[in-house]
Design a protein around this nucleic acid. Structure first.
Lengths: 354, 354
DNA sequence: AGTAGCTGCACCATCGATTGTGCAATGCGA
DNA sequence: TCGCATTGCACAATCGATGGTGCAGCTACT
């Protein structure tokens, strides 16, 4: 019943133990002791005591005094997607390598949540924030600005802060062309038979749609209306859109441009309710890379966004202090069907199994 | 060039503005004003000023004073897996519904990192911690214990703290039987033709192996040695194990028990280098559910661990204060091939597309 | 009038660390 | 030996919020 939640040692404890003043202890333990001209032997004494008593600094106290916390935030729409979870993974490694502490949170694509969560992070005195895929980046910007918080958009751009995003237009063109190429191998594709599903009224969707249409016009010579069905970023609504198309047309289009892996989940939900042979002959292109998504029973061409570069670029901008509110494009990569790319987890060493 | 990073308003600012003392302002703004017998009109005055000046409490200062922070931690092995990212998603919702702030971090399965990251979280005075899939749960426990931090293991159990885990033995039996059933539809399965890949020397792997072997003995009447290849939790080493098996035997086994979706990624990496017809006839059972993994071109039977229940149970234990160091089993669910389950994202409302 | 009891708030120590400043002791050169 | 520079550290204010305690002013009752 050792219910003693032993109080953690403080600089005052070590001050008493060492016979030095708290300020000396503080200086020794935060590394500023040389410039404060503390004797090496004093430093060693205190460091020894600190180790012995398992001293660790109270970071809230430090943060209060310094009015910063050592925390760096990443605001995601959701965690549960390989795209965003790989972003979290990469972000975390990056932040740790700078000796800071990552805080990854998600706001469920709700503009109000986004702002409120950022308020909270600001209340904890986070030092910088990456705003990924925000529904209302400029709303978030206002909150950050009011608090003087460095921040950068990623994935979806805002107009008020620097943004690092994929070249969605170029990616969509690439993807569209690849779908056509893949379809055309046997018999030529009709322009109405290449349909885009997913996305909504955000910058990424608009750019992808633009790329899709331009590519169709260039490659198929036509871009009829009615070949685009926005569904939002929800598997359920996506599925309903596929069902709807299927009911209207008795089949799916031969070529499918799917706006994101979340929408692709809608497609497999649709599939789960339909026999396999509904999909012979189907060619899918999908934004976002998911390793399993790449190995579905029909060809899935994916666009892998370069998360590592985007995050790195975002940090570079944060380091700049006050970067211009412009958009930085990062080139995404076309991933042929049945391709297993390496991911952030491959950077980890895994100990040899027993 | 409004470079003024306006200092945030404090209770002292509002104190001056309102003509009340800082303690009154504090009481009003943290809700304790009724029990401090502050006049309603005073409260309204201060609340008005707070709203007008966009006051938000400095949570580091509050945390310092109260010696707790409102932060609740989740320690993951990695983010970039549907299993763990869905855990993060569920955890976050849970924490927010309690009015606290989630902090999700990953330690890459490195015992030393695990301890060090937890030390850091403790330095921020987090109030509770869920330790998910830790490589060294008892090491983490020691750190928490020394700081008097409430914590619960999840996914992988420890011996010193309460643990909520899947019933891996039962799940593995279910899965093994399901694989056999699926294989046996055409021609009976030889016991050597059902092989387990993945996992390492942790509780989950051991239980799954035990379930696998017992089920084989029961259903196939034999459980020859050499049908188990631990690979660790890395796609690359998993892939190498499949390659190795393939080279030795000229083919894969007909029935494959894959220890986790990470190991399944190893399988698709293997597949990427082999023609499709290497896998006709293959039946895979895989621990962890991944929506796309469920739709691969061969039957993949999955075990979905009940993350919602596990997290809920974990919070219940945390609320108990000092729960006994026992293991709580949660029953996982068998997921037939080509099944699209709903996930945490389905709880989100998505606004209708434009 | 005296007092008991309430109302409504102010005062002040405190949480743990940081940092500008002051000062005694020592060293050193002239 | 005097004076100045340097060394090595202590002091105390401060970051923003919290909560125990004290106390003036008013009411109500005897």
């Amino acid at each position: 019943m050792d219910r003693t939640a032993k109080k953690k040692a403080t600089i005052y404890d070590l001050s008493v133990l060492s016979g030095c003043s708290p300020s000396t202890v503080s200086a020794v333990l935060n590394g500023s002791w040389r410039q404060r001209r503390i004797k090496e032997s004093t430093a060693e004494l205190i460091q020894g005591l600190a180790a012995k008593h398992q001293y660790t600094a109270n970071l809230q106290a430090r943060g209060l005094r310094r009015s910063r916390s050592g925390l760096v935030g990443l605001l995601l729409p959701v965690h549960d997607t390989r795209y965003f979870s790989s972003m979290a993974q990469t972000f975390e490694a990056c932040v740790r390598s700078r000796g800071q502490c990552p805080v990854v949170v998600s706001a469920c694509r709700d503009p109000q949540e986004e702002r409120q969560i950022v308020e909270t992070l600001i209340s904890y005195s986070i030092e910088a924030l990456i705003v990924a895929g925000a529904t209302d980046p400029d709303g978030v910007h206002a909150v950050c600005e009011a608090a003087g918080l460095r921040h950068v958009n990623i994935d979806l751009p805002g107009t008020k802060a620097a943004s690092v995003i994929s070249d969605n237009y170029a990616g969509a063109r690439l993807l569209t062309e690849a779908i056509v190429r893949r379809c055309g191998a046997d018999r030529p594709l009709d322009a109405t038979d290449l349909h885009l599903f997913g996305g909504r009224d955000d910058h990424a969707s608009r750019e992808r749609i633009r790329g899709f249409r331009d590519a169709k016009r260039d490659v198929l010579g036509a871009d009829p209306d009615g070949c685009i069905t926005p569904t939002g970023y929800s598997p359920t609504t996506s599925r309903l859109a596929f069902e709807d198309y299927f009911e209207r047309n008795g089949r799916l289009p031969r070529g499918l441009f799917v706006n994101s892996s979340i929408n692709l989940e809608g497609l497999i939900r649709f599939m789960a309710h339909h026999p396999n042979d509904t999909f012979t002959d189907l060619v899918v292109g999908c934004y976002d890379y998911d390793p399993f998504g790449s190995f579905l029973p029909f060809p899935v061409i994916m666009i892998r966004q370069d998360v590592e570069t985007m995050i790195a670029r975002a940090f570079a901008l944060l380091d700049e202090g006050r970067p211009a509110a412009r958009i930085h494009l990062v080139t995404p990569e076309l991933v042929p069907p049945r391709t297993a790319l390496r991911g952030p987890l491959d950077a980890l060493k895994d100990e040899a199994p027993a």
